[in-house]
């Protein structure tokens, strides 16, 4: 009898072991299937998000642009990450041919005076926004032009460039605010409360936006300042030239504190 009981107990243990193994195997299979579905979804999403764009060949009769003789192929491509702002080509970044890639910001606008059809750039770009280019290839950035970046952060990778010019990119960590103003929420007239000039705008705290416009609408500027990626905002804007007479509205969103530093950029904006 004792042997029979022992045998029955062993059989029960074996059966329990089999059931346990079966459960573990089922669990592993379920996890594997979920992981496979997740991986497939990520791949599909990435493919959908990818939006490459090659600018069209200039049409016959359209004036083509040329780069200086200094521009040459580099063994190792250079990459610059640019915050929204105005960058003087040949001074702030080297003249050259670049691939542009949006890294932050959904609804941006990137332009030079030379249009995409002539080899320059004039495109809506964004990291996640629909109908906005995520990448743009072969933008010819010619010395003396201003690259204007609004509402998007970009990685610029050289195809070829003038290696003698070092990129002079503003540093967000540079907190040496020598000369500037900290406007609180309200409406200002540039030339009265705040001097006209070129400024680097830095977010000190919180979030909010500024809106600038001249009476004749020849100049306007808007940016939401924030460090929260969900806000579609940025912590800085570089080299903003605000003409005299501009009305500037500062709007608090959440404890907004902005600093406008007189820009150190020399001979900026040829259009001035």
């Amino acid at each position: 009898m004792k042997d029979l009981a022992e045998l029955a107990r062993k059989e029960r243990e074996k059966e329990q072991g089999r059931q346990k193994r079966k459960k573990v195997t089922t669990l592993i299979v379920i996890i594997a299937v979920i992981a496979l579905i997740a991986a497939a979804a990520i791949v599909a999403f990435t493919v959908m998000q990818r939006r490459d764009y090659e600018p069209p060949t200039p049409e016959p009769g359209v004036q083509t642009i040329t780069l200086s003789d200094e521009v040459t192929d580099l063994e190792t491509p250079l990459t610059f990450r640019l915050m929204p702002g105005n960058y003087l080509i040949g001074t702030d970044i080297p003249e050259g041919v670049y691939d542009l890639k949006a890294t932050n910001g959904d609804h941006g606008y990137v332009s030079t005076d030379i249009s995409s059809y002539e080899g320059g750039i004039n495109e809506l770009m964004g990291f996640g926004g629909t109908d906005y280019l995520k990448e743009f290839r072969n933008a010819w950035l010619v010395k003396g032009e201003v690259l204007q970046i609004e509402g998007v952060e970009l990685d610029l990778t050289t195809k070829k460039c003038a290696p003698s010019v070092e990129a002079r990119l503003p540093d967000i960590s540079d907190q040496t605010f020598i000369d500037g103003v900290t406007p609180v929420e309200g409406v200002y007239t540039i030339g009265n409360e705040i001097p006209a000039g070129t400024y680097d705008l830095f977010l000190l705290e919180g979030s909010g936006w500024i809106y600038c416009e001249t009476e004749d609408y020849s100049f306007s500027f808007y940016q939401f300042f924030s460090t929260d990626p969900e806000d579609d905002g940025f912590p800085a804007f570089y080299h903003l030239t605000i003409p005299e007479g501009t009305t500037m509205e500062v709007n608090d969103f959440e404890d907004f504190k902005l600093f406008m530093r007189a820009s150190t950029a020399e001979n900026f904006l040829k259009s001035e």
């Binding site: 609804h107 941006g108 606008y109 332009s111 004039n122 495109e123 809506l124 609004e150 509402g151 936006w209 809106y211 306007s220 808007y222 939401f224 579609d232 709007n251 969103f253």
Partner: peptide, 20 residues
């Protein structure tokens, strides 16, 4: 939520599209 921020954002987008 701030409708004013979304309103300014959408105005800015219209302006950028027009500039383009």
């Amino acid at each position: 939520s701030a409708p004013g921020k979304a309103f300014e954002g959408v105005k800015n987008q219209l302006q950028n599209k027009a500039k383009q």
